[in-house]
């Protein structure tokens, strides 16, 4: 059974997941690109892990919400709206804490983030251990099994990502000015504090929504790899932002045949595609500079 010959069947089975992969493929690289320009990519390592811990906490607390738990156990549909509050809440909270701690410049930032990552990973495991109802769900989400996404999950993810993308596009100039030279943005009387707060909240929401629906593996990959690939080829800001989404989109599309033909989990397949594309772009960038 090949992908081309049985396209209709695959489409019927995986249309929701396919569309979800397109949404994250376009939007998450833009979020990662802003983090890259702000020299905060290392923060992005810990934030998805905190979002995953948030999902685990949500599952751990599920018995306190009997109607949600009953519906989940009876029909197998995870309470995504409920879990989004925990995933996005944990992501936003961690971004806020990192922002405060890093601005105070106490300790080595890399060590701080590595420590936070380890703590979040441990919390996720501990919460899941106490949550037998959600253990299987969390296991598949953490492995990046985007194929399980239902239509409600797709709408939720699309809403969250659309909101984030609108913000990035509407505040593009100000966000880039802040990322390039924050002091100058303040001298220009741009509303830096409000924009940073809004950015933190929406990025937390997008990362939380992504972790909850397509899993942290794919979120990690789409946050970090496309910015590296795009920066290798871009000559200016506009081309950088266009290349971000092109690289993300190509990565998620290339992963589908890889995942189906070789029966591999989709999330890791997309990350490997993104890594291969990044290597290719780095090579092309090098050739471009030599020329």
């Amino acid at each position: 059974m090949g992908l081309i010959e049985d396209f209709d069947l695959y489409w019927e089975l995986f249309a929701t997941s396919f569309l979800a992969s397109i949404v994250v493929g376009v939007v998450l690289p833009q979020v990662g690109g802003m983090m890259y320009l702000r020299r905060e990519s290392f923060v992005g390592i810990a934030v998805p892990q905190f979002a995953a811990a948030g999902v685990a906490l949500g599952l751990f607390l599920l018995p306190w919400f009997p109607s949600l738990q009953e519906s989940f156990l009876d029909h197998g549909h995870p309470p995504l709206d409920y879990l989004l509050v925990f995933a996005a809440g944990a992501a936003c909270l961690s971004m806020l804490l990192f922002s405060i701690v890093l601005k105070r410049q106490r300790g080595e930032p890399g060590a701080l983030l590595a420590g936070a990552f380890a703590t979040a990973a441990a919390l996720a495991i501990l919460f899941l251990d106490g949550s037998p109802a959600g253990n299987n769900l969390a296991e598949t989400v953490l492995r990046g099994a985007v194929l399980l996404l239902d239509e409600h999950g797709l709408w939720l993810l699309t809403g969250v990502c659309l909101l984030t993308m609108i913000f990035i596009m509407a505040a593009r100039r100000s966000l880039l000015a802040i990322a390039f030279d924050c002091d100058n943005a303040i001298a220009m009387r741009l509303p830096v504090a409000w924009l940073e707060l809004a950015q933190m909240m929406l990025f937390g929401l997008a990362i939380g929504g992504g972790v909850m629906t397509v899993g942290p593996v794919l979120v990690f990959g789409l946050l970090f790899l496309p910015p590296l690939a795009a920066s290798a080829l871009a000559s200016g800001l506009r081309s950088f932002q266009i290349l971000l989404s092109i690289c993300g989109l190509l990565s998620v599309l290339a992963a589908w045949p890889l995942s189906i033909e070789f029966d591999l989990p989709y999330g890791p397949s997309a990350v490997i595609s993104a890594a291969a594309l990044t290597l290719l772009c780095l090579g092309l960038g090098r050739l471009q500079r030599r020329a």
Binding site: A179, F180, G236, L237, F240
Partner: peptide
């Protein structure tokens, strides 16, 4: 109109001279 020390700005930022002035 603020002019910082050029060393304080990120070296990797994918930005052209035109982009910087346009800011």
């Amino acid at each position: 109109g603020y002019v910082p020390q050029q060393l304080s700005l990120p070296a990797f930022f994918p930005v052209t001279v035109q982009d910087v002035v346009t800011m």
